[in-house]
Write a protein that binds this DNA or RNA. Structure first.
Lengths: 338, 338
DNA sequence: TTGAAAGCGCTAACAG
DNA sequence: CTGTTAGCGCTTTCAA
């Protein structure tokens, strides 16, 4: 507290033991008499001593830190994942260092540099767009959430995501159950793998039920936000295309779409049904509560944390794996079964 | 990349210079010939070498990392601050390690331990409820956002927040301008200093304009969320208390309040005007766009980052300071001037 | 302008 | 059961 920070050496001196002994009782390995243990513990307690993690990390060539890279912490979906992740890691004594890439490939690269220079023991990459993997030291456990690098075929890597196919499937099912026949989908980001998977699930359900969905009924926005959803739906309406069901692959898109519908005096769900995706709060508390496919961010975060910790601890490369997290439809006011 | 990680020593050998020289060119201090500089730089470039930050930190007894402690990353207000903070820190070569306290005093304490053991160079504490300060090494620059510890009268500490008084003041002014006379306020967390300041600002404006606001018209929720806002307003309506203007000290509260009003068939803003606080997205995209006092999270984050960096760099204790960030009212559909 | 060497705080191998 | 010591990768005197 007062100026100089205390170290194992200080503790050792005060206890009349060696630093090695102190280290042993701190880490509870090796042998020591109960007597010394108590003596040392007492002094540690008294001075509220915490071993310097930098030194420990340097020595052991590993740290109790994992890094995460997300496109946008301000986005509720990512924030919730981080929340869950951090909570779990913390309970295991790990800390989380966080990088926001703002979707920039440039920044992503820099982040990775930082991460390895900082000696994090594990890396979690959410929704990366660039093939950042080549930069990574292949020894450090890395787990991708959602988007993943298809070239990720070497090294200590895993991939985790919601069951997006099932998500798309459920959305189509719901719309069809509501007797919608003329479907329209507004996808998430075009280049994204996740987008494709969701769309595939949607299309699969349509085909199963004998509903056709032409290509020109699938719209890909340039951004994924409220205004974009609104704009696209207005444009669709303007074009005269008939539709009675919309699947928006993002709740923000759905919220915008909903507003466009309501503005035009279209009854929801009577004339048009709407299903969103993500399960963030706007789906619950927007203009109208929106039926949506909710991703279990708490579970995603927890599973990711567990996995990365396991990979760190086992050290030996865990076999490559892809973990699928279940996804659910929550029915609210924008759909009604008929 | 292949197994072993490269170090200054390796670089030195490859260049036929000493590690000292390598270190010098990396950090651009001391002298070296242009020739050696180029040679060394080339090799560093070639191997994409990044100095081990653990070793550097250990040696220099400081790190390029700052820690932040927030109650809930999932909360948009905090998330946006973190976003801005991280972005700025990153641009200066610093990383951000993040802790979620979940409002638990127990966890807060642990977090602080972790933070100092990790040798972060600066700490940012958002909305801490407990007097966590005593635990802190007083040498490490600490900045409080919003709530601050009144016992914080020693050490390298600063305090930063929105101008909450002005926020409360503006809210009252708006309501009064809308010809509301029977005001009601639903505060944020009762124990919070910020709550008191907002309320003070509100009351000050009322008094200035000759509007009275009795104590029993100020409600303090036990939680600060949608449902609580809704419940309280329903209860007020049920009690028969007359009111024509509500100030909710949180947008979530306001959103809930709005729903209660609408559910009861009360016209907003014709019968009752409503002002929220924070400026998060629910205020913009909820049932109705809510007039609110918006906090400039981008600015808060940036100022906090700048301040903590300055404190770290100057090292000498900066004089104690309190930075006030301007706050604004954004008028939307829940108020209309008369 | 450069190199040799000490040392940051810690752990682990080895010796006792 | 405990102590001595080397060394993790880096920066920084001090000396050349």
């Amino acid at each position: 507290m007062n100026g100089k920070k205390i170290s194992v050496k200080d503790i050792a001196e005060m206890c009349n033991v060696s630093v090695a002994t102190v280290s042993r009782v701190i880490n509870q390995n090796g042998r020591f008499s109960q007597e010394t243990e108590e003596k040392v513990k007492k002094v540690i307690e008294k001075y509220n001593f915490k071993p310097n993690q930098l030194a420990k990390g340097l020595r052991e060539n590993k740290t109790k830190a994992v890094g995460i890279m997300v496109p946008d912490i301000g986005n509720e979906y990512f924030a919730k994942i981080i929340l869950s992740l951090q909570t779990f890691l913390f309970s295991k004594g790990y800390s989380l260092v966080i990088y926001n890439t703002n979707e920039s490939a440039e920044i992503e690269k820099q982040c990775v540099s930082y991460l390895v220079a900082q000696n994090v023991s594990g890396i979690i990459i959410v929704n990366s767009k660039t093939s950042v993997f080549k930069q990574l030291n292949k020894d450090i456990p890395t787990i991708y959430i959602d988007e993943y690098d298809r070239y990720t075929d070497v090294g200590n890597v895993a991939w985790l995501s919601s069951d997006h196919f099932q998500g798309g499937y459920l959305a189509a099912q719901e719309l069809i159950d509501c007797k919608c026949r003329d479907l329209v989908v507004i996808t998430a980001l075009k280049e994204s793998t996740v987008t494709k998977i969701r769309t595939n699930g949607f299309v699969a359900a349509c085909e199963e039920r004998g509903i056709s969905l032409q290509k020109e009924r699938i719209f890909s926005p340039s951004k994924v936000d409220f205004n974009e959803g609104k704009t696209i739906v207005k444009r669709i309406i303007g074009s005269g295309m008939h539709f009675d069901g919309i699947f928006c692959q993002t709740d923000w898109l759905a919220a915008g779409a909903l507003e466009a519908l309501l503005d035009k005096g279209i009854q929801v769900p009577d004339q048009v049904s709407l299903v969103g995706f993500d399960g963030i709060s706007i789906s619950q508390f927007g203009r109208m509560p929106i039926t949506t496919i909710v991703q279990d961010t708490a579970l995603i975060g927890k599973k990711a944390a567990k996995l990365v910790l396991r990979m760190i601890e086992e050290q030996k490369k865990t076999k490559k794996q892809h973990i699928l997290v279940p996804i659910n439809l929550v029915r609210r006011k924008t759909t009604r079964k008929k």
